[in-house]
């Protein structure tokens, strides 16, 4: 099963390498990884989407906790949470197709952020279902490039 693990780490040189090395060294997969500073500039948050049965996920959590620079590990999958990802899609679209692309983007509440004679670039934020939906719809036009940030997640409510 897929799990989204949220990890608070010291915002220090080399921490990402330690976390990434832990996954590769023990044969765990990283589906996506997203790192950024928190409101406290000495702390970064890593959001890691990974795959595995319960035993593997438990090991991943424990191994992450063992790293000295890791402050807190939380498997947000176990909680009621929201996940988002930002995706930029450069799609082939000449004058004749522009209107149809705009229509699709509007339905998915995305934005057109760049246009050239032969392409349009779309910005879309959402969960996996939405991202998959729009990419399916845009595929027939010809997707030239697709860039994803990786997922970030937050637990709902006060927790």
């Amino acid at each position: 099963m897929r799990h989204t693990i949220s990890v608070l780490v010291e915002n220090r040189f080399g921490v990402l390498a330690r976390v990434a090395g832990l996954f590769s060294g023990r044969g765990y997969n990283i589906d996506s990884l997203c790192v950024g500073e928190t409101d406290d500039p000495t702390i970064s948050r890593m959001t890691i989407v990974t795959n595995g049965d319960n035993r593997i996920i438990e090991q991943i959590e424990k191994q992450l906790n063992k790293l000295i620079d890791v402050i807190k590990v939380m498997d947000v999958t176990k909680e009621d949470h929201v996940k988002r990802e930002l995706v930029l899609i450069k799609v082939a679209a000449d004058e004749g197709q522009r209107a149809r692309v705009i229509e699709i983007v509007e339905i998915f509440r995305g934005k057109i952020i760049d246009v050239s004679p032969k392409t349009m670039t779309v910005e879309i934020t959402g969960d996996e279902g939405k991202i998959n939906g729009i990419t399916e719809m845009l595929k027939p036009f010809g997707i030239k490039e697709l860039v994803r940030t990786g997922k970030v997640a937050v637990v709902r409510g006060e927790k």
Binding site: F13, G14, A17, R18, G21, G25
Partner: peptide, 13 residues
């Protein structure tokens, strides 16, 4: 630091 990362408890540069 890189070479020994998987075989130390922690390291400092």
């Amino acid at each position: 630091i890189g070479i020994t990362r998987p075989i130390v408890k922690h390291s400092y540069l």
